[in-house]
Computed example of a mutant assay.
Amino acid sequence: MGLDVFCQRYELAENIEVLLEEEPRDQLRTALRQIAMRAIAELSAVERVLEGKETRLLQACFSSVFSLPPEVEDMDRYLYLETMRSMDNMLQALLLNSRASRVSELLQNIFQMLLTLSSSEREHVRQRAVGRIEGLSFVLAENPTLEAWCRSRTDIHGPVSYRDIQIPVLGQLLGHLLLSQHSWEEARTLARDAVQHLAVFLAGQNSKRSCVGLDPSTHRHLPMGLLLFLTSFVLPSCFP
């Protein structure tokens, strides 16, 4: 029996979702959340096991972790930080292990969920959501093409590169982050860093488009004026 068949037969993804949903929302006493997210990260490397299930698993993770109370003295800080680190590692693993043809869809879904959560009325939920946006944005900015850190195998659509990634929610996300820099003191630095990372990503993407003979102004999802603003105003602050 192959590992993929084993995972499907015993519904590992579904059982992880149930475990996360059963965790109390008002306390963090065990490492179960981080163990569950580590398991999701590992399962993402098993071909097709999580396809079609990522959204429900991510919703369960975000709900279980973001709904925890703000960091207070009676919360184990090490346990909390390890839980958040496990979430960041899980998000990166889902992205890295995704088939090239699904990277855009996955990024769109993740950013859309995090965008919604970053508008929460609860300050600690906003901060956690923006922190995850900043982390994923950094991954995009630091890797000229995702193929540089994907496994050697590729699917029928070939390796993914900047110019292949289309994220319809990106314009809305950038606008939200720009406003957040002036609205929410607790998330100001994270929002600023996320904007800078995404500006680097967009500059690289449009540079790639120019190299293959495409007009940068044909970017599908971002007004050219906003792109020019980001590259002329935000990018210089990345390189003091």
Rank of each mutant, 00 (worst) to 15 (best):
M1S: 13
G2F: 04
G2C: 09
V5R: 06
F6R: 15
L12T: 10
L12S: 03
A13K: 11
A13C: 14
E14R: 08
E14Y: 04
N15H: 02
I16C: 06
I16H: 08
I16N: 11
E17H: 10
L19T: 12
L19C: 08
E23V: 08
D26N: 12
D26W: 09
R29F: 01
T30Y: 02
A31M: 02
L32I: 14
Q34H: 14
Q34R: 14
A41D: 06
E42T: 06
V46F: 07
L50W: 11
E51H: 15
K53Q: 15
A60Q: 07
C61N: 02
F62Y: 05
S63I: 04
V65E: 12
S67H: 08
P69V: 06
R77L: 13
E82G: 03
T83C: 08
D88M: 14
L94V: 07
L96M: 11
S98A: 13
S101P: 09
V103I: 07
L107Y: 07
I110S: 12
Q112R: 15
Q112V: 04
S118G: 13
S120N: 00
E123K: 01
H124C: 04
H124T: 09
I133R: 00
I133K: 00
E134P: 00
G135H: 10
G135S: 13
S137I: 02
F138P: 02
L140H: 03
A141V: 03
P144L: 06
E147Y: 15
Y162I: 08
R163N: 04
I165Y: 00
I167S: 05
P168V: 01
V169K: 04
V169A: 11
Q172G: 13
L177T: 06
L177S: 06
L177C: 12
S180V: 05
H182Q: 15
H182S: 05
S183E: 14
W184I: 14
E185K: 04
E186V: 03
A187M: 11
T189Y: 13
D193C: 11
L202E: 00
A203I: 09
G204Y: 06
R209E: 14
S210A: 13
T218E: 10
T218H: 15
L228W: 00
T231A: 08
L235H: 07
P240S: 05
